[in-house]
Amino acid sequence: MSDLLSIRGLGLKIDGKEILRGVDMELASGEIKGVMGPNGAGKSTLLRLLAGELQPTTGELTLCGQDMSERPEREFSRDGISYISQRPGPFRDLTVEENLRGAAQRGSLFSRKSVRGKVDRLAKLIDMERKTDVVVSELSYGEMRTLDVAMALASEPLLLLADEPTAGVSGGVAGDIVDLFKDLCESNRNTPFHLDGLIFVEHDKGTVFNLADRVGFLHDGRLVVEGTPESIRQHGVVAQYLSEHEFD
């Protein structure tokens, strides 16, 4: 498998404090990568750097061989990286349909028919066809998270970055989100909203080991170890972390 994403020596320093240090990581095409680690390890920061929300102070980041390090934030989405942030992101004063349309129309601003079709497919994908007229502020937290996922998929990204997409949602909804990610990553390339790769951050160990092909463990801004879910459990730091968070 060829590399979809490659990170070399990625680092971030804010006010003299090193938040991330020399992170190296590859994501092969079709791969799902989970990132775990204690609070403050730099997991969310890593995703924000990959999404273009933060600019790295060192290192380089390439998507399909294209250097993304100095690109403005908006170009990450245009070039195929979508990001689901830690807090629910839909626009609260807009309806579900307007949120989906707003996410889907970029790049085809005046092709109403194609945007309409995409919005319908997205609403169906997340089972919200009957709620398209509902204002987001009236949705449950789980519904907002699900809408987040659909909005991130609207630009038909190659790579999806998801920061704790199932945190705070009920087990059923969390399961639906995990299943959707799996289906989209395993789907045929011609399937609508097919994903070439997924990197997600999760605290829930079950979700990480169930969903990820490979897992990276961050500690104090460093990528300590990376491997398959089976192999990474055996690593000393990870084993200690898992035992300390046995009941999480």
């Binding site: 908006r74 992101g89 626009f91 004063d93 970029r106 909005m151 630009s155």
Partner: peptide
């Protein structure tokens, strides 16, 4: 108006 940062992340 709702969230400028979010709109930027969507590619606008």
């Amino acid at each position: 108006k709702g969230d400028k940062k979010r709109a930027e992340l969507l590619g606008y």
